[in-house]
Amino acid sequence: DVEEQIRRLEEVLKKNQPVTWNGTTYTDPNEIKKVIEELRK
């Protein structure tokens, strides 16, 4: 469920934690926001 994935990513973003997505770890909040934007398409 895309909405659920977006919610999880936004939670991690608020906590300033790194996100691992498709084998890539993102630590930059701007990169995480880009992943969220991609999911919304």
Rank of each mutant, 00 (worst) to 15 (best):
Lys14Ala: 14
Pro29Gln: 07
Thr25Ser: 05
Pro18Gln: 10
Val12Pro: 03
Gln5Phe: 14
Glu31Gln: 09
Thr20Ile: 15
Lys41Met: 13
Arg7Asn: 05
Thr20Ser: 14
Tyr26Leu: 13
Lys14Ile: 11
Asn16Gly: 15
Lys41Ala: 13
Gln17Gly: 10
Val2Gln: 05
Asn16Ser: 08
Pro29Trp: 07
Asn22Leu: 10
Glu3Ser: 09
Gly23Arg: 00
Glu38Val: 08
Gln5Val: 14
Pro18Gly: 10
Glu38Pro: 00
Glu4Met: 12
Lys15Arg: 13
Thr20Lys: 09
Ile6Phe: 03
Lys14Glu: 11
Asp28Gly: 05
Leu13Lys: 01
Thr24Phe: 12
Arg7Gln: 08
Ile6Glu: 01
Ile32Gln: 01
Glu11Val: 06
Thr25Gln: 05
Tyr26Phe: 08
Glu4Trp: 12
Lys33Phe: 08
Trp21Glu: 01
Thr27Ser: 11
Val19Glu: 03
Thr20Asn: 15
Thr24His: 13
Thr20Cys: 13
Thr27His: 10
Asp1Asn: 12
Thr27Tyr: 10
Glu38Leu: 14
Asp28Thr: 09
Asp28Gln: 06
Glu3Tyr: 15
Ile6Leu: 06
Val2Asn: 05
Val19Met: 09
Ile36Lys: 00
Leu13Asp: 01
Thr24Glu: 10
Asp28Ala: 04
Val35Gly: 00
Lys33Gln: 10
Val35Leu: 15
Glu3Asp: 12
Trp21Leu: 12
Asn16Phe: 13
Asn16Ile: 03
Gln5Thr: 14
Gly23Asp: 04
Glu31Ser: 06
Glu4Pro: 03
Lys15Tyr: 14
Thr25His: 06
Arg40Ala: 04
Glu4Gly: 06
Ile32Tyr: 02
Leu13Trp: 07
Thr24Gln: 13
Thr25Val: 13
Gln5Ile: 15
Ile36Pro: 00
Thr25Cys: 05
Arg8Ala: 14
Val2Phe: 12
Thr20His: 14
Leu39Tyr: 04
Asn30Met: 12
Asn30Lys: 11
Lys34His: 08
Asn22Arg: 07
Asp1Val: 09
Ile6Cys: 04
Gly23Ser: 03
Glu37Asp: 12
Ile32Ala: 03
Val19Phe: 14
Glu10Val: 11
Ile36Thr: 01
Val12Ala: 15
Glu10Ala: 05
Leu13Val: 08
Val35Trp: 04
Gln5Ser: 09
Thr27Leu: 05
Lys34Leu: 11
Asn22Lys: 08
Lys33Cys: 06
Tyr26Lys: 00
Glu3Ile: 11
Lys33Pro: 01
Asp1Thr: 14
Glu37Lys: 06
Ile36Gln: 01
Ile32Val: 07
Asn22Ser: 04
Trp21His: 07
Glu11Asn: 07
Leu9Cys: 03
Ile32Leu: 09
Pro29Tyr: 06
Pro18Met: 08
Lys34Arg: 12
Pro18Asn: 06
Pro29Asp: 03
Trp21Ile: 14
Thr25Ala: 04
Arg8Trp: 15
Gly23His: 03
Trp21Met: 10
Lys33His: 09
Arg40Leu: 08
Trp21Thr: 02
Lys41Leu: 13
Thr20Trp: 15
Glu11Gly: 05
Lys15Gly: 08
Glu10Asp: 04
Lys14Cys: 09
Glu37Asn: 08
Gln5His: 09
Asn16Ala: 07
Ile6Asn: 01
Val12Tyr: 15
Lys41Val: 09
Gly23Ala: 02
Glu3His: 11
Lys41Gly: 09
Ile36Ala: 01
Ile36Leu: 13
Glu3Trp: 15
Thr25Leu: 15
Val35Met: 11
Glu4Arg: 08
Glu11Lys: 05
Arg8Ser: 07
Glu3Thr: 10
Gln5Leu: 14
Asn16Trp: 10
Glu31Arg: 02
Val19Ile: 14
Val12Lys: 15
Lys34Ala: 13
Gln17Asp: 07
Val19Arg: 00
Gln5Arg: 04
Ile32His: 00
Leu39Asp: 00
Asn22Val: 02
Leu9Gln: 00
Lys15Trp: 13
Asp28Cys: 06
Lys34Trp: 10
Gly23Phe: 03
Arg40Met: 08
Thr25Arg: 04
Thr24Ser: 06
Ile32Thr: 02
Gln5Glu: 09
Lys33Trp: 14
Glu11Ser: 08
Glu37Tyr: 07
Asn16Tyr: 05
Thr20Met: 13
Glu10Ile: 11
Glu31Tyr: 04
Ile32Phe: 09
Arg7Val: 04
Glu3Lys: 09
Val2Tyr: 10
Gln5Lys: 06
Ile36Met: 06
Pro18Arg: 05
Arg8Thr: 11
Leu13Ile: 13
Asn22Pro: 02
Glu10Gln: 09
Lys34Ile: 10
Val19Asn: 03
Pro29His: 08
Asp28Leu: 05
Leu13Arg: 03
Trp21Asp: 01
Thr25Glu: 07
Trp21Arg: 02
Lys14Leu: 12
Lys14Tyr: 14
Leu39Pro: 00
Ile6Tyr: 03
Val12Ser: 15
Lys41Ser: 10
Trp21Gln: 02
Asn16Thr: 07
Leu39Asn: 00
Val12Met: 15
Asn30Leu: 12
Gln17Phe: 15
Arg7Trp: 07
Glu31Ile: 07
Pro29Val: 08
Asn22Tyr: 10
Asp28Tyr: 03
Asn16Asp: 06
Glu31Trp: 02
Lys33Thr: 06
Glu4Thr: 10
Glu31His: 05
Asp28Lys: 04
Val12Asp: 12
Pro29Arg: 06
Glu10Trp: 10
Val35Pro: 00
Ile32Lys: 00
Pro29Phe: 07
Val35Thr: 03
Leu9Thr: 01
Arg40His: 04
Asp1Glu: 11
Val2Ser: 05
Lys14Thr: 12
Arg7His: 07
Lys14Asn: 11
Thr25Ile: 12
Ile32Met: 03
Asn30Asp: 14
Lys15Ala: 13
Ile36Asn: 00
Thr24Lys: 10
Arg8Asn: 07
Asp1Ser: 14
Leu9Arg: 00
Glu11Thr: 07
